[in-house]
Computed example of a mutant assay.
Amino acid sequence: MVRLPLTAEEVQRGQRLGALLRRARGGRTMLETALDAGISPETLRKIESGRVATPSFPTIAALAEVLGLSLDEVWAEVRQPEPGLDPADRLGRGRLVS
């Protein structure tokens, strides 16, 4: 399977998701949080650092549950558009889609 490059908006959304998860994790260790969510610590590290900008829904849902976040809270935080972002990227027109 060939993955298309991420748009600028997708990268920024991934960074906002990572920041939200780090804040919500607070004093909990990455290991504890990851294991409680049923994912590897490496996966959580990549999500928090923004290296995995588009994690799967079950992964996000599991992390939200473990961290006491509602999915509505996560979506509200992550979907905020960045000022100055090209509107074409916002609509997904900034890349080729098959």
Rank of each mutant, 00 (worst) to 15 (best):
R25L: 06
R25K: 06
L6A: 13
A24H: 03
S98T: 10
P41S: 09
I60M: 13
E10H: 01
A62K: 09
V2I: 12
V52N: 12
E73Y: 04
F57M: 10
D89Q: 13
A24R: 01
K46C: 13
Q12I: 06
L96R: 15
E10M: 03
Q12Y: 06
S98N: 12
G68I: 02
L63S: 12
L91H: 13
L85P: 05
S49V: 06
V97N: 12
Q80D: 07
L31F: 15
E42P: 00
E82G: 03
A19G: 01
A88Q: 10
Q80Y: 05
E65F: 11
F57E: 05
S56R: 14
R16F: 01
S49F: 04
A37V: 09
E77W: 07
P87Q: 09
A8W: 00
G38R: 08
E82W: 06
V97R: 15
G68M: 02
L91G: 08
L44M: 10
A76M: 03
G50N: 00
R90I: 11
E73C: 01
G38E: 08
L35Y: 14
G38K: 08
M30R: 15
L4S: 11
I47K: 02
R79A: 05
L71M: 15
Q80C: 06
L85S: 11
L69I: 02
E77T: 13
V52P: 00
P87A: 08
L6F: 11
V66L: 04
L21S: 06
R13D: 00
R3T: 12
G84E: 01
A37G: 09
R93M: 12
T59V: 14
P81G: 04
R45W: 12
E73D: 03
A34H: 13
R93L: 15
S70E: 01
E65A: 11
E82F: 02
R95K: 10
A76G: 02
L96K: 14
L96E: 14
E9V: 12
Q15W: 01
E73L: 02
L91F: 14
R3C: 08
A37P: 08
G50Y: 00
A19P: 02
T43M: 14
P58K: 11
Q15D: 02
E77L: 03
A76F: 03
V74A: 03
V78Y: 01
L31P: 08
E10G: 02
V74H: 04
A53S: 10
G50T: 01
P5L: 04
K46A: 15
S70K: 01
V11I: 12
P83F: 05
A76K: 06
R25T: 06
L21H: 06
R13Q: 04
S40I: 00
S70V: 02
R90A: 14
L63C: 14
R51S: 13
R23L: 03
R25Q: 05
E42M: 14
T7G: 09
P5S: 04
L6Q: 11
Q12W: 10
L44A: 09
A53K: 07
V74P: 04
D89C: 15
E65V: 00
E9P: 00
G50P: 00
V97D: 13
A61N: 10
E73V: 02
L44N: 09
Q15Y: 02
T59K: 08
E9W: 12
T59Q: 05
L85W: 07
G92Q: 09
E32R: 15
L35M: 14
M30Q: 15
E32F: 09
A53G: 07
A34Y: 12
D86F: 13
